[in-house]
């Protein structure tokens, strides 16, 4: 996000940012939803189901998980940010299959899935 001299001065003086940047951010958010044609309820339901599916395979932090729509250049992407919980040994713990509950690959803290 581009910052201007005015933005920086406003930040330093703890003033409200100029309204144009607020307008831009609000628009980007609302347009992502308009363009996807998904209602908040549908998006919520999808978020829940995605988390359920992912939770079958890895242990994730459900409270931290975020699924959102982001838009750039008239292209809307579904972005899922799902922090994976580590085990005591610092490795990702897999729930399934049960007899192979641990993998030795180095763990990543989160995954970005774009569709």
């Amino acid at each position: 996000m581009a910052m201007t001299l005015r933005d920086i001065i406003n930040k330093l003086l703890r003033r409200q940012p100029a309204s144009a940047s607020t307008a831009r951010e609000r628009l980007q958010l609302v347009l992502a939803h308009d363009r996807s044609d998904l209602s908040t309820e549908l998006l919520d339901q999808m978020r829940k189901e995605i988390l359920e599916v992912v939770a079958k395979y890895v242990e994730i932090d459900v409270d931290e998980g975020a699924v959102s729509l982001e838009t750039e250049d008239r292209m809307t992407a579904l972005v899922a940010n799902l922090p994976i919980k580590r085990t005591m040994t610092g490795q990702i713990k897999l729930k399934e299959p049960k007899n192979q509950s641990e993998v030795n690959s180095p763990g990543t803290e989160d995954t970005d899935q774009k569709s």
Binding site: A18, S21, A23, L27, Q28, D73, R74
Partner: peptide, 18 residues
Amino acid sequence: MMANQEMLSIDDVTDILA
């Protein structure tokens, strides 16, 4: 208003609407 950044800029609008 644009200079005071109290109005969406030309770039803002053309970027958003592409």
